Simulated assay, not measured.
Amino acid sequence: MASRRLLKYLRYYSSRVPGKAVFREGWNNAFGKHLLFTNTWTSGVLMIGGDIMEQEIEYQRGVISKRYDWSRVGRMFLTGLLFGPLHHYFYGWMDRVLPKRNMGSVTKKILLDQFIMSPACIACFIYSMGALERKPLKSSTDELKDKFAEVYLVDWCIWPPTQFINFYFLPVKYQVLYINAVTMVYNVFLSYIKHRDMTPVAAPISSDVIPQ
């Protein structure tokens, strides 16, 4: 009797809330009332993806002896979480002040992104990683001075064409997700720049090689 009642309930709810409707509702919530949460967590998770790819490259090149440094991954994740709200509010603000999708508005958005958001993100990355690594503030400032020009130059090569697609074609609610997806690949470069000062691991000496 109980099993028959349970089966009846399952049939009722499966007919009332089909799978596509559940998926659609979840998607709308993720990119609607929970958009800040979505932008924040996708930023952190995709930052992890970029750093893991870079660590694999470093491992294959012999720069690191341990395949994955999970404490480093954790620091990259926490730093990525900071970028989510930063992008969320900045792109929302730009869409309010420049709502049109024409060449003039898109060009202005790209310039605002390059002259305001890009330097802010570079500084945020360096200082937040330095804080998580417990480095003195002066050390992070010196690192920013040393690496800023190089990172900013690469920014100008990657982000203007990327942002043209973003600002011209995509609804604002998907813009941060798109940026996060591109950033996962860009984070390989960021992680390389951040950690390239590590001393390469010495290659082991083969046992059949006798020093002269």
Results as ranks from 00 to 15, higher is better:
residue 2 A to V: 14
residue 2 A to T: 15
residue 3 S to L: 15
residue 4 R to A: 14
residue 6 L to R: 15
residue 6 L to M: 12
residue 6 L to S: 11
residue 7 L to G: 13
residue 9 Y to I: 08
residue 9 Y to C: 04
residue 12 Y to Q: 12
residue 12 Y to C: 08
residue 13 Y to T: 12
residue 15 S to K: 15
residue 16 R to I: 13
residue 16 R to Q: 15
residue 17 V to N: 14
residue 20 K to P: 06
residue 21 A to Q: 13
residue 21 A to F: 09
residue 22 V to T: 11
residue 22 V to P: 02
residue 22 V to Y: 01
residue 23 F to V: 14
residue 24 R to M: 13
residue 24 R to V: 15
residue 25 E to Y: 10
residue 26 G to C: 15
residue 29 N to A: 15
residue 29 N to L: 15
residue 30 A to K: 07
residue 30 A to M: 10
residue 32 G to V: 00
residue 33 K to P: 09
residue 36 L to P: 00
residue 37 F to C: 02
residue 38 T to S: 09
residue 39 N to T: 03
residue 39 N to K: 06
residue 40 T to L: 09
residue 40 T to H: 07
residue 41 W to H: 15
residue 43 S to G: 10
residue 43 S to T: 11
residue 45 V to L: 09
residue 47 M to T: 15
residue 47 M to F: 15
residue 49 G to V: 09
residue 51 D to G: 01
residue 53 M to Y: 07
residue 55 Q to R: 05
residue 56 E to R: 09
residue 59 Y to K: 08
residue 59 Y to C: 07
residue 59 Y to L: 07
residue 59 Y to N: 08
residue 60 Q to A: 01
residue 65 S to W: 02
residue 66 K to R: 10
residue 70 W to M: 08
residue 75 R to Y: 03
residue 77 F to S: 12
residue 77 F to E: 12
residue 79 T to Y: 03
residue 80 G to F: 10
residue 81 L to P: 09
residue 81 L to M: 14
residue 82 L to D: 10
residue 82 L to E: 10
residue 84 G to C: 08
residue 89 Y to S: 05
residue 91 Y to D: 08
residue 92 G to N: 11
residue 93 W to I: 02
residue 94 M to S: 12
residue 95 D to H: 08
residue 99 P to Y: 02
residue 104 G to A: 08
residue 105 S to Q: 13
residue 106 V to C: 03
residue 106 V to T: 00
residue 110 I to L: 02
residue 117 M to V: 06
residue 118 S to N: 14
residue 119 P to K: 00
residue 119 P to Q: 01
residue 120 A to C: 12
residue 122 I to E: 00
residue 124 C to P: 08
residue 125 F to D: 03
residue 126 I to W: 00
residue 127 Y to E: 01
residue 128 S to E: 04
residue 129 M to S: 03
residue 129 M to D: 05
residue 131 A to N: 01
residue 131 A to H: 04
residue 132 L to C: 02
residue 134 R to W: 12
residue 135 K to N: 11
residue 135 K to A: 10
residue 135 K to Q: 14
residue 138 K to H: 13
residue 138 K to S: 15
residue 139 S to Y: 13
residue 140 S to P: 10
residue 141 T to D: 10
residue 142 D to P: 03
residue 144 L to G: 00
residue 148 F to Q: 03
residue 149 A to L: 00
residue 150 E to F: 06
residue 152 Y to F: 05
residue 153 L to M: 08
residue 157 C to S: 07
residue 159 W to R: 01
residue 161 P to C: 04
residue 166 N to A: 02
residue 166 N to H: 07
residue 167 F to P: 00
residue 168 Y to I: 09
residue 169 F to N: 03
residue 170 L to R: 05
residue 171 P to H: 00
residue 171 P to Q: 01
residue 172 V to N: 07
residue 172 V to M: 07
residue 172 V to R: 07
residue 173 K to T: 11
residue 173 K to E: 11
residue 177 L to E: 03
residue 177 L to W: 00
residue 179 I to A: 08
residue 179 I to T: 11
residue 180 N to H: 05
residue 182 V to E: 04
residue 183 T to H: 04
residue 185 V to Y: 12
residue 186 Y to E: 06
residue 188 V to Y: 09
residue 188 V to D: 06
residue 189 F to D: 11
residue 189 F to K: 13
residue 191 S to G: 06
residue 192 Y to C: 00
residue 196 R to G: 01
residue 197 D to T: 04
residue 198 M to F: 10
residue 198 M to H: 12
residue 199 T to S: 09
residue 203 A to K: 14
residue 205 I to R: 14
residue 205 I to A: 14
residue 206 S to W: 03
residue 207 S to I: 11
residue 210 I to P: 13
residue 212 Q to L: 11
